[in-house]
Design a protein around this nucleic acid. Sequence first.
DNA 1: ATCTGACCTTTTTTATAATTTGGTCAAAAA
DNA 2: TTTTTGACCAAATTATAAAAAAGGTCAGAT
Lengths: 204, 204
Amino acid sequence: MGELDKKRELIVESAIKRFSHFGIQKTTMNEIADDISVTQPALYYYFPDKMTLVIAVVERIMNQYFEELHKCMDGLQSLDEEFYCILTLRKKFMERYFMLKLTEATQEVGQIHDSCQPIMKKAHIKEAAFVTGLLEKAVNNGSISKIDPHKMSGLYIDVLTGLSMFVFITKNKKLFPGNEEFEAILTKQEEFTKVFISGLKTSK
Amino acid sequence: MGELDKKRELIVESAIKRFSHFGIQKTTMNEIADDISVTQPALYYYFPDKMTLVIAVVERIMNQYFEELHKCMDGLQSLDEEFYCILTLRKKFMERYFMLKLTEATQEVGQIHDSCQPIMKKAHIKEAAFVTGLLEKAVNNGSISKIDPHKMSGLYIDVLTGLSMFVFITKNKKLFPGNEEFEAILTKQEEFTKVFISGLKTSK
DNA sequence: ATCTGACCTTTTTTATAATTTGGTCAAAAA
DNA sequence: TTTTTGACCAAATTATAAAAAAGGTCAGAT
């Protein structure tokens, strides 16, 4: 890793910290510049604009997610275990990066968030493909019936996301969701997963 | 029905029309007064404030929903048919009364919407109880396994609502959702319902 | 190749005035 | 007595303009 990439890393790390805590909108390029003890124009030597930096940050987070996803999946056998692992990891990342509003439960439509859309879509497809893989394995196992893995993985992830939004919107009268909200989400998702897997065993 | 109630009806009907089209916030008491050809203070003889009128409107809508729900349920046998009927009716009402934002997919927290919360909660409980009844019947039928009807009905409705929010938030870049969005919601809900019912047959 | 100070333009914030809206009340009309 | 009105008020909303802050550029220093 060259000196240039090393500095880029430094910038991204500072950005992740500030974005996670204050949100993207409330973080200025000046603050990030101060963090790494350079003037603000120096930042623009490494990232042409804020949008590019945001994308780099989101990309890094999603990569980390998939890295941990593969790691925690190690040694698991049943679909139940695997799905539970996904739910837990999702909760972890949702709590950690809630302020980035990547699932944009709000509709403060900044062009910044629009720029994240392609990368989030890519991540969504990747995650769906991963779940599809798990389902295909289970089908071949014979542990579930011959459903359409692609279709079912999409449905599964959409419901998970939908349940998150449901809890955030209906129970989130406070400014920020607390541990209770994240726990409520996980509980609902677990309940759903149980029935869902049962359904996959006999469906069609 | 006395003369007083008749006029109240008139006011509520005008309010429903304007609320459905322009939303609650963008409808003024003056406009409603004009609709029924009286001055604005006359309105306050029938409803002490706007909040009370809004509640009357929402109550009327929910009553209509449950009335139609019972009606369209007539003669249906299987859980599949009954759930499909619910989905269709939900779509109908969601399309018709979207502008009231009763599920508040937005977080424009007006005290007006807060005042609707109790009545919406009541309606939610009522709907959940209704679905619970369907599930109990199915359990006694033997058409599904001995699950917890109360818990499963809550889960089912939460997922339905979550899927609505999911589509609205992720696909609604336009100001208003169109027919495509409502269709997308219905499709997802149908797919989910299929697996869900399968799951109920073998769960636990 | 990396960084800075000076500079520019566009957004966002702030402060303030104008308007609208929800709501009240004494008195008139029915 | 029941219903409606015109006149009125206070709070919320909107409109406008000024001030500040933000993103971004660039020639030149290191």
